[in-house]
């Protein structure tokens, strides 16, 4: 059952990225172009997603297990460390260069665009380089 849930969750997520057009790097860059010609849409995507999901995180906070798995897999780190700060800052620079973050980059495989594939390969390269310095 957990496998079906994973597939369905992914499909719903992909439909959401498509309907909001966040799958489109140009749309995302429109949001990041804050000081010139600004498209605030991305904020509305985040607000919609957070409004729907936050109540469920709250309601399930004391539940011992999810419906179809043994445990909740939630990050245990709580500290604001240098890795969070440096990593997020670097991610933002890359996001601003192309307008792609991991979700849309993978979902856009549906559109068969060679530059999106080059981006994904580079992103995997970034994961790999980071793991070389023994980071996990």
């Amino acid at each position: 059952m957990s496998k079906i849930i994973s597939l369905i969750s992914g499909i719903i997520f992909g439909v959401g990225l498509t309907i909001s057009n966040m799958i489109n790097p140009a749309k995302v860059l429109g949001f990041l172009n804050f000081f010139d010609q600004w498209d605030p849409s991305l904020i509305f995507v985040m607000i919609g997603a957070i409004l729907i999901s936050a109540p469920f995180f709250f309601l399930f906070r004391n539940k011992s297990k999810p419906l179809f798995a043994e445990i909740f897999s939630i990050p245990k780190i709580k500290t604001i460390d240098s890795e969070l700060i440096v990593g997020s800052s670097l991610f933002g620079i890359g996001w601003g260069l192309v307008g792609f973050c991991p979700g849309p980059a993978i979902a856009s495989l549906a559109l068969v665009n060679e530059y999106a594939v080059f981006f994904l390969i580079s992103m995997f390269g970034g994961f790999f380089l980071t793991s070389l310095v023994n980071y996990k």
């Binding site: 957990s2 849930i5 959401g16 849409s41 995507v45 997603a49 999901s53 798995a69 445990i71």
Partner: peptide, 23 residues
């Protein structure tokens, strides 16, 4: 369309979390 797409993404987050306990 941004808000509608966002609520759909939120639904995906909810299904994955309450179903499989994953983010």
């Amino acid at each position: 369309s941004a808000f509608a797409g966002g609520t759909i993404i939120g639904l995906a987050v909810v299904v994955f979390f309450i179903g499989n306990g994953r983010l």
